[in-house]
């Protein structure tokens, strides 16, 4: 009568449950791996660099002497770079998002633009560097100035702003814009006064993330030939410049000659990470504080 052997079933069930537990442990450890590596990376870099950061380092000029070297030039260069990247990507990125989401009616055209942006997002950053080198530095003959670097970076981070803005615009509920049309507003009035304000937190979050990507990128600037030499502090967007990542790059390369350069690189990394942290924290704050739920 008893077709099922309970002991066999119990045995099988137990091994299956054991396997499940073991697998769970393994999956958990894998996830922890990322956490542990991040922890090691940050502790290691801070412990190496923190002792070298003081006011003189942050405000000093670049120097070949290790204990006199400062990164003010790189900090200013990074700031000037942001002065170019922020408005350029915002204007182009948000316009593209508005056009694609609200004006393009032909679904084929829309999908071409979408595919194009997705592909641009996947182009290696160094290829943008080559585009910048050919177009801005050589063809338009800008030289290694902030404007050339900034425009190159703007093209690089453009897809991030476009995608974030598109999502933000899409998230604005239809009844808001329909109410606006119902009151007699034109399309542009509706966009300017209803849709954009409602989408602004999402757009700003995307823009800040794009900026933080731009100030951490190195490869395109290396290709543009941005130096890390003793150059005067940049005073505007038409000056030659260097940025924090370039400074890190050269000091890391030269650390095989002068070991202390690795410490300077670590100190510069800490500075860069603090900047990125502040930017990202701002983005999260904006997202949490102003994101409306409709």
């Amino acid at each position: 009568m008893n077709y099922i052997d309970q002991t066999v079933v119990m045995k099988k069930t137990n091994t299956r449950r054991l396997k499940n537990k073991l697998a769970k442990g393994m999956f958990f450890l894998s996830t922890l791996f990322g956490v542990v590596v991040l922890f090691i990376l940050i502790v290691r870099i801070i412990s190496q660099g923190i002792g070298w950061i003081d006011l003189d380092f942050l405000t000093g000029k670049l120097s070949t002497q290790v204990d006199r070297a400062g990164i003010m030039g790189a900090i200013l260069g990074t700031l000037w770079l942001m002065v170019v990247v922020a408005p350029v990507t915002m204007i182009i990125g948000v316009s593209t998002a508005i056009y694609v989401e609200l004006y393009v009616k032909n679904s084929k055209v829309k999908s071409i633009i979408q595919t194009n942006i997705a592909n641009l997002a996947g182009v290696p950053s160094i290829v943008y560097g080559i585009l910048g080198l050919t177009l801005f530095v050589r063809l338009l003959d800008f030289g290694n100035i902030v404007l050339a670097g900034g425009l190159t970076m703007s093209l690089l981070v453009l897809p991030i702003v476009v995608v974030a803005s598109q999502e933000a615009i899409r998230a604005v509920p239809d009844h808001l814009s329909e109410a606006s049309y119902g009151l007699g507003a034109t399309k542009w009035q509706t966009i300017r006064r209803i849709i954009l304000p409602a989408a602004l937190p999402g757009i700003l979050t995307g823009a800040i993330l794009a900026l933080s990507r731009a100030i951490g990128e190195t490869a395109p600037l290396v290709v543009l030939g941005i130096p890390a030499l003793l150059i005067p502090f940049p005073g505007g967007i038409f000056d030659t410049f260097t940025v924090l990542p370039m400074q890190i790059y050269y000091w890391t390369l030269d650390s095989s000659l002068v070991a202390e350069y690795a410490n300077l690189a670590a100190a510069t990394i800490v500075t860069l990470l603090v900047c990125l942290f502040v930017l990202n924290a701002t983005a999260i704050l904006i997202r949490n504080k102003f994101q409306k739920k409709y």
């Binding site: 991040l38 990376l41 290691r44 870099i45 190496q48 933080s212 951490g216 990128e217 190195t218 490869a219 990542p245 890190i248 790059y249 890391t252 650390s255 690795a262 690189a265 670590a266 990394i269 860069l272 990470l273 990125l276 990202n280």
Partner: peptide, 13 residues
Amino acid sequence: GIPTIVYGFFAFT
């Protein structure tokens, strides 16, 4: 979100 240059430094040193 960590810049790749930082990973480069990490790899090298």
